[in-house]
Each structure stands twice: as structure tokens, then as C-alpha cells.
């Protein structure tokens, strides 16, 4: 099949969306490094470090999705790029859910003391 009439920088935009997400997680983790240890002690450092690992995972996904995206858009019936994204999305949503639940526990505990 021929290339789409208007690829519209889809691969670039998607990769940038992952990169934005990686950046927010990295910034959030660094802020966490400042504000969590006084309340949580060593656990605060551990949580922030895990956040940084997650942001690295997101940054690597940004690279991978750029390659997937450009490949899928070049050969429109080649679906290999899309075949692998759902597990990555599930992993991302899962990590965000863990962060959110941990935050709920933190907020409830701090409010209770």
C-alpha cells in the first residue's frame, strides 16, 4: 500500500506524548525526593527512586513508539507496531494506579497524625 495522504507527524506526536509523560513523572519524582523523606524517612527515597525508574521506562517507550509509529505509517497494513502497544499501556496505567493508591495511603496516614 502507498503511504497515507497526510501522515501528519503522527509518530512524532505520539513519541512526544510519551516524552511529556516521562518528563512529568521525572519532575514529580524529583519533587518527591524533596518533600517525601521528611515525612516518610528512607521510604520517601525509595518511592522517589522507583518514580525515576518508571520515568526511564516511559522515556524508552517514547523511543520505541517513534520507531513503531513510523514503520506502521510507512506500510499501512503492517500492524506489528500496534500489536505490542496494549501491554505497554496496561503497564503504564498499572504504574499510575500504584502511585495513586500509595498517595491515598500517604495522605490518609499524614492527615491522621
Amino acid at each position: 500500500m502507498t503511504s497515507p495522504a497526510d501522515p501528519g507527524l503522527q509518530a512524532e506526536r505520539t513519541s512526544l506524548a510519551w516524552r511529556r509523560t516521562a518528563l512529568s513523572v521525572a519532575v514529580g519524582s524529583l519533587v518527591g525526593l524533596r518533600i517525601l523523606p521528611p515525612q516518610l524517612g528512607p521510604l520517601g527515597y525509595a518511592v522517589s527512586a522507583l518514580g525515576l525508574v518508571w520515568s526511564l521506562d516511559l522515556a524508552l517507550t517514547a523511543r520505541r513508539r517513534y520507531r513503531d509509529g513510523s514503520r506502521v505509517l510507512r506500510a499501512r497494513d503492517a500492524m506489528d507496531g500496534r500489536a505490542v502497544v496494549a501491554p505497554t499501556l496496561a503497564r503504564t496505567a498499572g504504574a499510575a494506579a500504584v502511585v495513586a493508591l500509595a498517595a491515598l495511603a500517604f495522605v490518609v496516614v499524614v492527615a491522621g497524625t
Partner: peptide, 8 residues
């Protein structure tokens, strides 16, 4: 594929 990428 563009629609799937937009959904992502």
C-alpha cells in the same frame, strides 16, 4: 493507524 495513535 493514525486513529490508534491518537487514541494512545
Amino acid at each position: 493507524p493514525r486513529f490508534s495513535l491518537a487514541n494512545e
